[in-house]
């Protein structure tokens, strides 16, 4: 049972990590509490649902559509929602309102189009494999595999490439980045696209696994935010590690506590960290790095 719980924890943690890293990417460099990230996630799930169920197209096409639409929404949020505010140098609260507004519009738009009833994309039980007493579905294996590809690639992007370094520079000191001549506008756009694509992938996985509801984005974005805080704000891999931790703790807690408390545990974990380690798991490391 423990092994099964660990595997399930890793799977939910991996999906949280996709959301959390996308959120962290945007939060770290723009300091916007990017609630609209949840809207991108939800839209991706619904696009998948619509293309598969409404247009009867094969899954790979639907995945392509879902990611494209997520990126387009991400770009729209940046260009229409955030950029004008940034150029007017308004306070961060205004960004938050703008973000929340976008979230609400998308959520209600989806209710208008598809209704409030949850929709399933895969109606049959997912194909599962049994290894000893361990049962794992095909989809969950795919989730883990995808994350094993996506996260190392992201690491390479930030560690080795020019654009990755520029983004880190921008996150560390936006004004200085501007002074040394970085094209911040383009960088912000790039960050948004990357973040939206990650949320899109997460939306696809959740949609395939448990179906879509118009309100699914809210929990997803809150867990992502918790992971960013636990994983130390400003440190991108931290968000991923913390998301994995949240997934594992949620699942393993079942051993001692009834499963009904899973939601509470996420925020309990946040409070524990805020009290005992307010700078998150990697707080000391970041401090010593001097960034």
């Amino acid at each position: 049972m423990v092994l099964q719980l660990i595997v399930n924890g890793v799977v939910s943690g991996a999906i949280y990590a996709l959301m959390a890293v996308g959120f962290a990417l945007i939060y770290n460099s723009t300091h916007i509490f990017h609630l609209a990230h949840g809207a991108v996630f939800t839209l991706s799930g619904y696009t998948l649902y619509f293309v598969v169920k409404g247009m009867n197209l094969p899954l790979p096409v639907a995945i392509l559509f879902a990611i494209t639409l997520s990126i387009l929404l991400g770009i729209a949020i940046e260009v229409r929602g955030y950029r004008p505010l940034r150029e007017r140098k308004v306070s961060l609260a205004a960004f938050l309102i703008s973000s929340l507004g976008i979230f609400i519009v998308v959520e209600n738009g989806l209710i208008l189009l598809f209704g409030a009833i949850p929709k399933l994309i895969t109606e049959e039980p997912l194909k599962a494999y049994q290894i000893g007493s361990l049962v794992i579905t095909q989809l969950h294996m795919t989730v883990i595999l995808c994350c094993l590809i996506i996260f190392p690639l992201l690491h390479l992007l930030f560690a080795k490439t020019r654009v990755g370094k520029m983004i880190r520079a921008l996150s560390d000191h936006p004004e200085l980045a501007l002074i040394i001549g970085l094209e911040t506008r383009r960088l912000y756009l790039f960050i948004t696209i990357l973040g939206a694509a990650l949320a899109g992938v997460a939306g696809i996985f959740v949609g395939l696994d448990v179906g879509v509801t118009p309100i699914m984005g809210w929990d997803a974005v809150l867990i992502a935010a918790v992971a960013v805080i636990i994983g130390s704000v400003g440190y991108l891999p931290g968000a991923g590690v913390a998301a994995l931790l949240v997934g594992l703790v949620q699942n393993l807690s079942v051993l001692k506590i009834s499963a009904q408390w899973q939601g509470t545990i996420t925020f309990g974990l946040l409070i524990l960290f805020l009290v005992f380690r307010p700078k998150g798991i990697f707080g000391k490391m970041i401090a010593s790095r001097g960034a």
Binding site: M1, Q4, L5, N8, S12, V206, D209, V210, G211, T213, M216, D219, Q250, N251, V254, S258, A259, Q260, Q262, G263
Partner: peptide, 20 residues
């Protein structure tokens, strides 16, 4: 006897507990 949380979508943890 395990509970399915109101806002939940992933009930695998209570399920595993019951299965066990």
């Amino acid at each position: 006897m395990e509970m399915l949380a109101e806002e939940g979508v992933d009930y695998r943890s209570p399920i595993i507990k019951i299965k066990n």
